[in-house]
Design a protein around this nucleic acid. Structure first.
Lengths: 116, 116
DNA sequence: CGGCATCCTCGAAGATACTG
DNA sequence: CAGTATCTTCGAGGATGCCG
């Protein structure tokens, strides 16, 4: 089940953006630049430590974010977007914009049906 | 960029693009304009009828594609991108481009590791 | 030809508890 | 504080068969 290479590169981008929490993690990091694990967790109501760790590890694996450990007690770990990770910003931006319009689009559809 | 994460609509766009076959279906329809069910199926090696039907229905539900049934025997159904659906093209293209670069990025990473 | 109805698999996501 | 280590749930995706 292999698809035309020219066509399916989209899936690579998606595979990186598609974790339940990845987009919002990236948006937070893009906004703030650098965040500690606990700050990130506080910013994401409902996420578990395990999920946050997972998603961060996967993003780190792809060089989207970098992880800096301060060898001290109590532990301190900071996460930040890499230069490479910033290249994803246009996509996130485009999706955000589209998502916003889509919300309106759906609303209009409902309204036009209701008024018929 | 001073967006409130709570208002972030990125997930809406993702929820539409994230089906295992949706992006490639959309790319095919963007290229060809209109395709029959069987043509689409032939273009997607490995997809099952059920999945193709599912993905098409979901895209139709969001007004991304339109479905035209010709009442004849044997049945004929054509799918095409809606004008609205075309607004997704920039995102798909951005992802495709990024995905291509990302493949190179990963390759470089491997090479630099191998040469150390 | 273009579906729909079933059943099943398998991995992502979640809950919970423990630790350096 | 910032993680591992397990166990469980849940649903997307897949295989197969029947139908107008």
């Amino acid at each position: 089940m292999e698809k035309k290479p020219e066509l399916c590169r989209v899936d690579d981008a998606l595979s990186i953006l598609v974790g339940k929490w990845k987009p919002i993690i990236l948006l937070h990091l893009l906004q703030k630049g650098t965040l500690r694990f606990s700050e990130l967790k506080r910013s994401l109501p409902g996420i578990t430590q395990k999920m946050l760790t997972n998603q961060l590890r996967e993003l780190e694996e792809e060089d989207i974010i970098s992880r800096k450990v301060y060898p001290q007690v109590p532990p301190k770990v900071e996460y930040s977007i890499t230069e490479y990770g910033k290249t994803l910003e246009p996509i996130l931006e485009a999706m955000h914009e589209w998502g916003t319009k889509h919300t309106l689009h759906k609303k209009n559809k409902v309204n036009s049906k209701a008024s018929s």
